[in-house]
Design a protein around this nucleic acid. Structure first.
Lengths: 327, 327
DNA sequence: TCGCGGCCGGGAAGCGCTCTCTGGGACTTT
DNA sequence: AAAGTCCCAGAGAGCGCTTCCCGGCCGCGA
């Protein structure tokens, strides 16, 4: 029997005599034959791999930021989401971290040459050029989170502003009138949107202004932000915190000041991460379906690999409020 | 100029005329040439890839365990450690999750055939057959954490028992006499070792027995374990908790009972994860250098790829006590 | 019975690269 | 000056696979 026939059977193309078909599979099982991926890639010009690219401005791995980044559930949840769609299809995941401009250019070259068929991109830097480069090179790619600058590339994002609005409505619905917010870093798009949504919802209800303190998405920054907030604005009844980790810190701050939650001050977090469940009282929070979003991003990439002529697409997920004890 | 010469220049073999050398690199820069990885792999039989394999008994990705696993810093920290040694060498990381026995067999086949040059393995299941399979197939691999069953495969582990001893000595050194422990799941080797080390150190100081409660490495289990511990053993002066997350929960439990830490009860955690810094008071804990260990595991794999005749090796890291506020 | 059309299997090319082998040029040695 | 030596560039094979193309076989219709 010729290699050609075997190849046809294994790839399931064209009608091959069922008897031969059977014989081939038996032989494969018996000998434990595994096709050589490199050889196959060489001729099909497909690698059967999707890259998960983390693009940042950090060049060395021992950088504390990178350490934090990997230790943060954010990264793992995205990996989990991507894997959940790749695994059933037998597609490989290759992880790529690019910090320098040189690395970015190199990555685009490698990708363009077929190292991976497509890329799921996490662009962490506000003026990251990677999305544009990917786009120019015609690589099947999609971002998790909207690009900081307008680039014709597919992406999946969360309606962060709607999440902020959800928090506002809930707080208002509880009867809290004097509200405040602990925001994320001002330069992060998601932070901005959460603030905007919260602000607009309050404005619709006639609340023209509310105090804010900027945090850094860390436990400690949430703690100190809350301390600052309550000392400067003693009458506060409700606080929206831009992520759960900060909210957990905020809760601790309130506890040390003997402020009861939610009776004295109601607190709403954002993300519905494990920190929300680990906080006491458990956090009422806005659910950020990161796994689902990463999965959807991956599907977008896969679709584009199948049909490169597909137009650029964006999918916006709606956040949901998860009511627990803190508000 | 022939392809052979170009190949030699790019791979830096043999003495090539410096002038030609220069010309080639100029041409490469000018045309943006990127070597085809598949073609290169085909002939060199090297993929330039190392796989990070997570081997577990879970077959579907939506499994809550897998979700937890990815969201846990454990996974990310290992990825970070592996990347830190792979990245400078330009080696790719391919992520593989294998849940079923079939997937394991398939993985070994793929690896044996050259899909990756080696594997860093996270074996999560006590009677996982993967280490043995990898070993039988002669694949360059090493485990993070010792194998549950004796298998001639390289691994990197932490001297968990020494960590337990460190905690015991510190607690004793503070003058705490009536000690207790919140352990991890009994079937996890690392849990057992931490308990054993703690017990033996106490025994050396004449403490024949101490109360223990088994937890599940989660915040909530730490919280309820601590509640159980102090209600059953009111005179406790110090508690060793088998990981930081449980310790954080334990701290919260003590706080709700108005037990002062460390004055009434001293608490020591394990891992030195972000939970240790986010706890109030900040946790005194045993540092688990997971990134460094993952990096070392990767180096072991790389060494074995370079020289398959290398003998099986194990590297045991020593834990260090990080003294903060809780003990 | 012969011719034609439709399928199925095999031959062979070739994907892009590395590497051995060989030829030739330059330099050294006798 | 001739022969030997050494080193560098090019020719070409071949890695393992897919796929185009073609030949042959079978079935159906005339």
């Amino acid at each position: 029997m010729s290699r050609a026939t075997v190849s046809r059977v294994i790839n399931g193309v064209r009608n091959v005599d069922p008897k031969l078909h059977e014989i081939v599979w038996q032989a494969v099982d018996a000998t434990g034959y595994v096709p050589n991926r490199a050889a196959r890639s060489l001729v099909t010009r497909r690698s059967g791999t999707v890259a998960l690219v983390v693009s940042d401005a950090v060049s060395h791995d021992d950088d504390p930021f990178m350490r934090r980044f990997f230790a943060d559930p954010f990264f793992g949840r995205i990996v989990g989401g991507v894997m959940s769609v790749l695994r059933p299809k037998g597609i490989q995941l290759a992880l790529q971290i690019v910090g320098t401009q040189q690395a970015r250019t190199r990555l685009v070259g490698d990708l363009g040459q077929g190292q991976a068929d497509g890329a799921v991109v996490l662009s962490l830097h506000p003026d990251d050029t990677l999305p544009q480069q990917l786009c120019d090179a015609g690589i099947a790619a999609a971002l998790v989170g909207r690009p900081a600058q307008p680039v014709p590339i597919s992406y999946v994002d969360l309606a962060n502003d709607a999440g902020g609005a959800l928090a506002a409505e809930h707080l208002l619905g509880r009867g809290c009138t004097r509200l405040g917010m602990i925001t994320g870093p001002a330069h992060v798009p998601a932070s901005q949107d959460r603030l905007t949504g919260f602000r607009q919802a309050l404005a619709r209800h006639g609340h023209a202004w509310f105090p804010t303190v900027e945090g850094g998405f860390t436990y400690e920054s949430g703690e100190s932000a809350m301390l600052a907030l309550i000392s400067q604005h003693p009458g506060l009844e409700g606080v929206f915190v831009a992520n759960d980790l900060m909210a957990q810190g905020a809760l601790m701050a309130l506890r040390t000041r003997d402020v009861r939650v939610p009776d004295d001050i109601a607190v709403i977090g954002f993300d519905d991460s494990s920190a929300a469940l680990d906080a006491r009282p458990q956090l009422t929070t806005v659910r950020h379906p990161l796994e689902d979003m990463a999965a959807e991003t991956t599907r977008l990439v896969l679709a584009r690999i199948d049909d490169p002529s597909l137009r650029v697409e964006s999918v916006i997920f709606d956040p949901k409020l998860v009511v627990r004890q803190s508000a």
